[in-house]
Design a binder for these strands. Structure first.
Lengths: 221, 221
DNA sequence: TGTCGTATGTGACGAAGTCACAAAGCACTG
DNA sequence: CAGTGCTTTGTGACTTCGTCACATACGACA
C-alpha cells in the first residue's frame, strides 16, 4: 500500500481544520494495520476515535455457534459507529472489527476527541451524522433479519455486492456471513437461482445472469 | 395523571441547568400525550428532542406482514435514541413510537437542542451516553434475533417482564411482539413450559412457577 | 342466558437452521 | 502428472420456526 495523500482520501478532514483551529492530526497518530487484523472485539474498550484514511473495516457479530453477521463496513473517510458509541458511553464493544484490506487510520485519543467535540461544531456534525446514519442502518438490519425472507435478502446482497461486470467474488460461507444465516441455506438458494438461470457460479465466484429477475425478487421499487 | 414534579421524575435535568446557564425548559414545551398515541412513525422526521418526564414510550418495528418487534422502551428521565439519531443525521424515522401510558415530555426544538449541545458538556454527556447505551442494546437485539432460539429468548423475556410476584400480564400476541416472532410460536412454547410445570397461565396472564428452571434455560450466567 | 369480541389451541405445510458426511475443485509437491 | 491436503460445495434427514386456516374457549355485558 502506498502512502496516500490523506487530504484526498479523507477530504472532510482538512475542511474541518479551520473550524478546529489547528491540524486535526495533532495529538493523534496515523496507524497502519495489515489486512485481517482484528481491530477490536467484544469485551474490549476503545481508547481512541478512529478515522479511516484508506482501506475498509468490517464490523460483525459472531454467535456462540460460530455463525456471523456483517453489520456494516467502514471505509475511507468514515468513522466507526460502534467506536463512537463505546467512546461516548464508556462501554465495551459488542461486536468485532476486522481489517478487510490493509488499513490506515487516524487515531484520535479520547481526551482530544472530547475537546474537538466541544470546540468544533463542524467536527460534531461530522461525527454525529456519520454515527446516526449507521444507527439508522442497524434498524434496517433488525428489520431484515427479523422479518425478511432469505431468498429476497440474498438477491439484494448479490445485487449490492456485484462489480460492474455483475460478478460477486465471495464463497457461499462469506455470503452466509453477510446475511447472518447458514452456509447450506445459501448453497441451496444459489442452486435455485441457478436452476432459474438467474446466476451462474464457479468456485468462489458468482455471475449475475439475469439482473432484472433478481431485482424483481429483491422487490426493486 | 397528576402534574408531576419533574425535578423528581427527571433529576438529571435540574442538575444540567447550571452548566447550561438557564432553565432547560426555556424555549421548550411540556407536551402531554394520552396512552396509545402514536408519537412518531416511519417516514416522519423529528422536529424536537424529547425528554420524558413521566410515562413510557415503546419503540418498535412493524413488518409488512404485520409482525412487530419491540426495540426498546423510553421511560421517565430518558430520551429516545431514534429521535436523537434522526435529529442529528437529519433523517427519517425507521420505526414507530407509541405511548404505552399517558406521557409527559419536554420537547426541545432542534435549534435549542443544537445550541445546548454546543454549550454544555454536561448536556452532551447526558444525550450521548443515553444514546450509546441504546445503540449497544440494538447490537444485542440483532444478536438475539439472528442467532438465539425462541424458547431461550422467551424464558429471558418472561423473567425480565415478571413483577415481584412472578407474574407477567401480557397476551401471547404481546409476547410475540416483544420477541419479533409469531403468536402461534409463543402459544406452543408456553404450552411446553406449562407441560414442564415451569409456568401456569390464564387468559392474559402468566405466572412463573419455577423461576429456577426458566433461568437455567435462559442460560443464567 | 345469549352474544360478541378477544384470546388461545391446533393441524398442515413451507421456510430456515443443524448435523453429518460425501464429493469436487484447486494448489502444491515430489 | 499422480498424490496429498485443504477449501469449497452438495445433499439427505431432521428440528425449529413461521404461516394459514380454522376451531374453541373465555369473559364482559346486555
Amino acid at each position: 500500500m502506498s502512502t496516500p495523500d490523506w487530504t484526498v482520501h479523507f477530504p472532510g478532514l482538512r475542511k474541518l481544520e479551520p473550524s478546529i483551529g489547528r491540524p486535526l492530526v495533532e495529538n493523534s497518530k496515523v496507524v497502519k494495520l495489515a489486512a485481517g487484523t482484528r481491530i477490536f472485539g467484544p469485551g474490549q474498550s476503545p481508547e481512541a476515535y478512529l478515522l479511516l484514511l484508506d482501506g475498509t473495516v468490517r464490523v460483525q457479530q459472531v454467535s456462540e455457534t460460530g455463525r456471523e453477521i456483517v453489520l456494516y463496513r467502514v471505509s475511507a473517510g468514515e468513522s466507526c459507529a460502534l467506536t463512537t458509541a463505546c467512546l461516548m458511553g464508556y462501554e465495551e464493544y459488542q461486536a468485532e472489527g476486522v481489517a478487510e484490506t490493509d488499513v490506515q487510520a487516524v487515531a484520535i485519543p479520547r481526551t482530544t476527541f472530547d475537546e474537538l467535540i466541544a470546540r468544533s461544531a463542524e467536527f460534531r456534525r461530522f461525527v454525529f451524522t456519520a454515527f446516526s446514519m449507521r444507527v439508522t442502518n442497524l434498524f434496517k438490519i433488525i428489520d431484515e433479519v427479523a422479518f425478511s425472507r432469505v431468498d429476497i435478502r440474498l438477491a439484494q446482497k448479490l445485487l449490492e455486492l456485484a462489480d460492474s461486470q455483475g460478478r460477486v467474488a465471495l464463497t457461499h460461507q462469506q455470503l452466509a456471513s453477510e446475511l447472518g444465516t447458514a452456509r447450506e441455506v445459501i448453497s441451496r438458494q444459489l442452486h435455485e437461482f441457478q436452476r432459474r438461470n438467474w446466476i451462474s457460479a464457479t468456485r468462489g465466484e458468482i455471475s449475475l445472469v439475469s439482473i432484472k429477475d433478481l431485482q424483481k425478487l429483491a422487490g426493486a421499487p
